[in-house]
């Protein structure tokens, strides 16, 4: 026991020392990412450099020179090394546009290597506050790529998809209008949420994910439990087809089930491309709607009468 305590104390002491050390650094220099290619030139790695945040021109020049130098890490290849002849840059403060000029040797870059190099340079320079987009010029003409020689215009973060999984894939953001069942069973409670999500997830899935979370309001309850699997979900012609696992309806009272169903339906119908929702449980249609017509095919229309705090929705 004693050994454990002294070990933990030691760790805490070491951590506090190093963290205070870090504090000191951040007063003078910030850490910026230098995007590099990997040795095989088929992926992007992140390197670091220290740079004082301040004068835009200085920062641009510094980052460019960092991208020209050889990296300390032998696995990383700096994007503006030997094979790219960079000439000059032109920064327009009013529009936030940055133009980089290269000579004809840029055309030697092809395919994946070109895309990766370009992405590294653009993403690195976009870190500079005030730089909103980056454009490339080859021999004073806008860069053209592809069999059709299409112009590659101004590029920003949205121009590249770094990954379909992991942190790099969380590139989308949206404002969701979510409805949750109220704890007393009287109706639905509205909540707005700002969310970020991966590009590989459909917006409907994101809605379902947040409906399974605990809502902010203390009087609301989740619309479904997180262990209910979504067996199938897709949208076609304005109808969202949703097939849930048996855990959704097993052991749930009919009142609560109806409230939950409408929480889901109303939330999904807030999305522009969903007008109606068809719900089934383990492939079988779930029929508990208030509307007599949709009772048979389990095709639900949103029922806004259930919403208790409609006034909040206007904001």
């Amino acid at each position: 026991m004693k050994k454990y305590i002294s070990f933990i104390l030691a760790i805490v002491m070491i951590l506090s020392v190093t963290l205070t050390g870090c504090e000191k650094n951040s007063n003078s220099n910030d850490t910026y990412i230098v995007y590099c290619l990997n040795v095989n030139k088929n992926g992007i790695l992140r390197d670091q450099c220290d740079l004082k945040t301040g004068d835009t021109d200085y920062m641009i020049k510094y980052l460019i020179s960092e991208m020209k130098h050889k990296s300390k890490d032998p696995d990383m290849v700096r994007p503006m090394g030997n094979n790219v002849n960079y000439q000059d840059y032109n920064y327009n403060e009013r529009s936030g546009s940055l133009f980089l000029s290269f000579d004809r040797t840029y055309d030697n870059l092809e395919g994946v290597e070109e895309s990766l190099t370009r992405a590294c340079i653009v993403l690195t320079l976009l870190q500079v506050p005030g730089v909103k987009d980056v454009s490339f010029e080859v021999e004073h003409e806008p860069l053209k790529l592809g069999t059709e020689s299409t112009t590659v215009g101004a590029m920003n973060e949205d121009s590249f998809v770094l990954s379909l999984t992991g942190d790099d894939s969380v590139s989308q953001s949206a404002v969701l209008n979510l409805l949750y069942p109220s704890g007393d069973g009287n109706g639905l409670i509205f909540e707005k949420k700002n969310v970020s999500y991966a590009s590989n997830m459909s917006l409907e899935r994101v809605v379902m994910k947040y409906l399974a979370d605990k809502p902010k309001s203390k009087t609301a309850t989740p619309a479904l439990s997180p262990n209910v699997p979504i067996l199938n979900m897709y949208v076609a012609d304005g109808v969202c087809y949703l097939n849930l696992g048996a855990a959704f309806s097993d052991g749930v009272s009919e009142e609560l089930l109806k409230l939950r169903v409408y929480a889901i339906v109303d939330s999904l119908c807030q999305l522009t491309r969903v007008k109606r929702v068809q719900i089934s449980v383990e492939g079988k249609n779930l029929n508990i709607s208030t509307d007599a017509q949709s009772k048979e095919d389990a095709l639900y229309l949103p029922d806004e009468s259930l919403i208790l705090n409609k006034d909040d929705m206007g904001k």
Partner: peptide, 24 residues
Amino acid sequence: SNLKVVKDTYGVDESKTMLWDNAI
């Protein structure tokens, strides 16, 4: 062939250049 997205059934990444290592 330049990893530029020509079609996305989610409509989210069209025209972007995909640099995911599996795609490369």
